[in-house]
Design a binder for these strands. Sequence first.
RNA 1: CGCGGAGUAGAGCAGCCUGGUAGCUCGUCGGGCUCAUAACCCGGAGGUCAUGUGGUUCAAAUCCCAUCUCCGCAA
Length: 307
Amino acid sequence: MKVIYMGTPDFAVPCLERLVKENFDVVCVVTQPDKPKGRKQELAPSDVKVKALALGLEVYQPSTLRTQEAYDYLSKFEPDYIIVAAYGKILPKNILDLPKYACINVHGSLLPKYRGAAPIQRSVLAGDKVTGITTMLMNEGLDTGDMLLKSEYEIDINATAGEVFDALAQSAPDLLMKTIEMYTKGEIIPEKQNDADSTYAAMLSKDEAVIDWSRSALHIHNLVRGMSPWPVAYTCLDGKKLKIYSSCLTNEKTTLQVGKVKEDKDSILVACGDGMLLSLTSVQLEGSKRMDAKSFLLGHKIDTIGK
RNA sequence: CGCGGAGUAGAGCAGCCUGGUAGCUCGUCGGGCUCAUAACCCGGAGGUCAUGUGGUUCAAAUCCCAUCUCCGCAA
C-alpha cells in the first residue's frame, strides 16, 4: 500500500511512525519548508521532517502545492492513499484526486466543531470537557470533508493544550489504522458534516494571551491552559511581562480587589473578577526562568498583578 | 552585527549606579518550646560572587574588556 504522508508539527509524528511500523510503503513525506526559529532566526526543520529523515524517507517541502511542478512530482508516486495530519495547507483538487482510494485527514477535534488550525487549543480555551479526533475524506474546503471515524477524549480540568495535544497525538494512529483498514474494505459510510453546527478554530495569537483579571477565575484558568505551551498566557508584574504556564482553581472567595495577590507562603493567589482566588502554579518573569509558585515567592514580593 | 534582561550558598533573590570583612527568604544540620506540628524560638554549616593564571585600582561581586550559558521581545 503506497502512501504519501503530509504533516508538519509533532502532532503528526506518531501517525507517520505507525504507518512505517505497519509496513505501509511511505513513498514521500510532504511537510512545510524549514522556517526560522529561535533567537538567532536559524532555519529549523519541522518535527515531521526530522522523523522522516530519521526513518530514511523521501521528504518534499514545496511552498505551495498549487503548481504543475508539485502535481507532477507527487503524481509519479501513484499513491493508494494520501494521509494528512496538521499539514497546514489546503490541497488543490488535482492532488486530492491523485490517490487510488482517498485523501484522509486526521483532525484534532470532533467535527464539525473546531474546523481549522487550532482545534485542540480552542477546545481547552472554551473549557470543553470532551474533545477527540476525527478522520475524514478531504475536499477542497477547510476541514469540511465527509467524516469517517471518531474517537473521544475526556479533557481534565487542569490539562493544558499541550498535554491534550500529546494525548490525542498518541491516540491518533489507532484511529488512523482502523480508518484505513475499514475504508479500504468499504466498511465505512462517510458521513456529511452538518455545516450549521460547525465552528471555526482560528490560529492562536499573542494578543489573545493577555490575561484580563476582571474575568472569572474559570475563564482565566482556561485561558492559561489553552495558551500553554504556546503562546502562553501572560500578565504584567512591576512593568515586566509575567508568563503564566499553569494555574489551579481554588474554591476560596475573597474580598480583595481584582488583581490583588493574597499573602501566602507558597501559593500565588490572585483575586479574579468573580471574587474567586486563582492559584498560579508555574510562572516565568521576563529575563528569568520558569519556576513554580513557591520558588518564585522566595525571591519576589507580590502585592498586585497585572500592571 | 536585530532589541533587551540575567548568571552571587542546595533553591529563589538583594547588594553593583556612589569600589573597602557578601546579605535576605526557603531548604539543610543541631538545640529549644509544645500533647503535637510542615508552626514558633535559638544556633551552625554551606559562596574561588558564570569564565578569563584579562584590564584599571592600595583595594573589584561592584568599574572596563573578551568569552560562555540562560531568558524576554521579535520571527
